Simulated scan of single mutants.
Amino acid sequence: MEQEQKTAVSRKRYTFPLIVLAVCLVLGGYILWSQNSTSKYPKGADFSYTDTDGQTVTLKNTNGNVRLLYFFYSYCPDVCPPTTFLMSQVQDELKKTGDFGKDVEFLSVTIDPTRDTPERMKEFGGKLGADLSGWKFLRGDEKATAELAKKYQILVTKDEEGNFGHMNLIVLLDKKGRIRDWISANDYFANGKDNLPLSDFVKKITDLL
């Protein structure tokens, strides 16, 4: 009888901590699930493109780096050249701190792959100061690229004469491939006293490192 009482007391002693532990595990799991399911940063849509050296580049295989993603075309008559040059200035600032090509990568995807051959994109990037060691110029299927841009909330259009139009926004992705910002290049090179300094652009990137 005495042994049975001791056993019952022992069970009571260990049962309650085990229940508390189980509740904590369930609660912890719920909190993690809740945080992941309600994240305010949307996951970027994956893609698979070929760079100017014929290598396959995807969103997944660039994870671990902060990325700038820009939809462009080299025959663009207005915004693409100055925006690409702006990005090259940001690139140069990041090279000073050793972040470019190591923890930060630039991805420029052409919306006009028929005319934007690898050679053409290399020439375009070279004229505007792009360092291909950390900056990939990418091309793939035209229709699929327009659809991808839409997933990143970038509108791409093409008229009956084959002229392209697109929103001039640069997508900022963090190391996990989440969209953290849409950066308007116009805020940095538009004429006027309210232009944002280049350091503001750089800080948006370095804050994610």
Rank of each mutant, 00 (worst) to 15 (best):
Y70F: 08
D181F: 04
M87E: 12
S88D: 01
D187P: 04
F71L: 03
V202Y: 08
E2Y: 13
G165Q: 08
K60T: 14
I19Y: 09
Q35G: 02
K151F: 00
T15K: 13
S48N: 10
I179A: 03
A146L: 09
G64K: 14
A22R: 00
F100G: 09
N186Q: 13
L59P: 09
D174G: 10
S10N: 08
I205E: 03
E93S: 09
D194R: 07
G177R: 03
V79F: 02
D103H: 10
I179K: 06
G64S: 13
V20L: 09
S108L: 13
K122D: 04
Q91H: 09
D92W: 06
S133H: 05
M121N: 10
N63L: 14
K102F: 07
Q153M: 15
T206S: 15
L32W: 12
D112I: 05
K40P: 05
D92G: 10
V156P: 12
Q5H: 14
S133A: 10
T206Y: 12
Y70K: 00
T145D: 03
D181A: 15
V9D: 15
T56C: 02
K176D: 15
S48F: 03
K176A: 14
A22L: 13
I170G: 06
L172S: 02
S88H: 00
C76V: 05
Q91N: 10
A8P: 04
T84C: 08
G125A: 01
L94G: 07
Q153E: 15
F16S: 05
G165H: 09
Q3P: 06
D141S: 08
G28M: 05
G54E: 12
G192A: 10
T15H: 10
K12M: 10
T84S: 11
T110W: 00
P82T: 02
F106D: 00
P197S: 14
Y75T: 14
V90R: 01
S39I: 03
W135P: 07
E93K: 11
L27Y: 15
K43W: 09
L169W: 04
V26E: 01
A45P: 06
V90W: 01
L68I: 02
K204D: 07
Y41K: 02
K158L: 06
N36H: 12
L107Y: 00
Y30V: 14
T15Y: 13
D53E: 13
F72T: 15
L86S: 11
Q5V: 12
N191T: 15
W135A: 07
V79P: 14
